[in-house]
């Protein structure tokens, strides 16, 4: 459970956001969307406690499973070491990883489908593989709150699919509160229960994905018209839903 109450952050005289109430209970998944520079990152940093609030209150657990966009991996640790280290962090100054820590790390790596890479060097992995490992590390900490900073935004389609599947399985399990920022509305529509759309400093919309992620709202958010389309899949029972941006056709918004 992670909570903000009447929260606001100001840089100099400029408010990034104000009066923001946010709650992410265990078992639900929340997507945060907004154009560049609208304060998604600042909001995320405030949630994590890296950024002090100018006003308002924050309630966060001691351990958060934070998944950064790319880890600090240039030292040469193996994937397994990286995952196990996240687990030891809370346990005090002299703690060392035990056998059971490595068992939990292995389990988390199986979870994200990265067990084959356990003994590879983390910094030699591709971007997509790294993000999956960082997700495994966050899971291995045992934190019930996972905060993901633009996950899968920089990944190719295949890796986006891998990543979204893992998030989806965590969501279906209902054991975590999941928060993530994203630039891809389709990701939000796919793996989030709720969406928070940041229109302005105090102007936002938060609610179930089906109510908030409408063509009109997304168009307003990015200043670009979009169409939500359903594609029938040959042998699939469930139609796939796509959110298609209409690049180069801003004038359609007025109509």
């Amino acid at each position: 459970m992670i909570k903000l109450r009447k929260a606001g952050v100001r840089f100099g005289s400029r408010w990034i956001f104000r009066n923001l109430d946010l709650e992410a209970p265990v078992g639900r998944s929340l997507a945060i969307l907004g154009p560049n520079g609208r304060g998604k990152t600042t909001l995320l940093r405030s949630l994590l406690g890296f950024q002090a609030l100018t006003e308002g209150r924050r309630e966060v657990p001691a351990v958060i499973g934070y998944v950064p966009q790319s880890g600090n991996g240039d030292i040469g640790y193996t994937v397994r070491q990286i995952v196990a280290t996240g687990r030891v962090a809370l346990r005090g100054l002299f703690a060392m990883p035990s056998r059971s820590d490595f068992d939990v790390a292995d389990e988390a790596l199986r979870r994200v489908g990265m067990e084959r890479f356990s003994h590879n060097r983390f910094d030699w992995l591709s971007g997509g593989e790294r993000q999956l490992v960082l997700l495994a590390r966050a899971i291995a900490t045992g934190a019930t709150t996972l905060v993901l900073d633009e996950p899968a935004s920089a990944l190719d389609l295949r890796n986006q699919d891998r990543f979204l599947k893992v998030v989806q399985s965590l969501r279906e399990e209902g054991s975590h509160a999941i928060l993530f920022t994203t630039h891809l509305p389709q990701h939000a529509a796919m793996v989030a229960d709720d969406a928070l759309l940041l229109f302005g400093i105090e102007d936002r919309l938060c609610g179930p994905v089906d109510d908030t992620m409408t063509e009109a709202n997304i168009a307003r958010l990015y200043g670009l018209p979009v169409r939500i389309v359903e594609c029938r899949v040959e042998n699939g029972s469930r139609p796939a839903r796509g959110i298609v941006p209409l690049f180069g056709q801003e004038e359609l918004i007025a109509s």
Partner: peptide, 17 residues
């Protein structure tokens, strides 16, 4: 081993408590 933990990076280490 605390060196390993701190070498995760400031933000990550902080989030893990």
């Amino acid at each position: 081993f605390r060196v390993n933990v701190l070498s995760l990076g400031d933000d990550e280490a902080r989030s893990f408590g």
